[in-house]
């Protein structure tokens, strides 16, 4: 039985690396954005893995539980609370980026970042 926490940490590192690769090297803007969502997913997974406790219980105090037993066995809930916020932030950032992409597609007719986000000085040939 492999250590759950270690496996998950490795997965989160893999997600961050895949995301960084695609956000930096892939030309298509939608794939760049997908890569960015993978970075966020990897970071969230990492932070949740911090709060995990092997053999622990879900950190919700049900009626009838002994509080001192609960305190020693429950997982650490603070990282979970942080991740909840961070998931929603990631989604809203992604939505704004996609909206900007849709506006820019109307102007350029392509999803390539080389065309869309080129330097203003080299921009003359795309001007109408």
């Amino acid at each position: 039985m492999a250590d759950v926490q270690l496996v998950i940490l490795l997965t989160s590192v893999a997600l961050v690396v895949i995301g960084l690769y695609s956000a930096i090297f892939i030309d298509n803007i939608i794939k760049k954005i997908i890569g960015i969502s993978f970075i966020e997913e990897g970071v969230n997974l990492f932070i949740v893995a911090i709060g995990y406790k092997a053999g622990g219980v879900v950190p919700i105090l049900m009626p009838g539980m002994d509080t001192s037993w609960f305190a020693t066995n429950a997982a650490y809930p603070l990282p979970f609370g942080l991740v909840l916020t961070s998931i929603v932030i990631g989604a809203s950032t992604l939505a704004v980026m996609l909206a900007l992409v849709m506006v820019l597609y109307r102007r350029y007719g392509t999803l390539s970042t080389k065309v869309m986000l080129a330097d203003t000085s080299k921009r003359e040939e795309y001007d109408e």
Partner: peptide, 16 residues
């Protein structure tokens, strides 16, 4: 859910 965070799992399932 495996990592004992059901509330995060719900949000993640809907959002991501």
């Amino acid at each position: 859910q495996v990592l004992l965070a059901p509330d995060v799992a719900l949000t993640q399932a809907i959002v991501e």
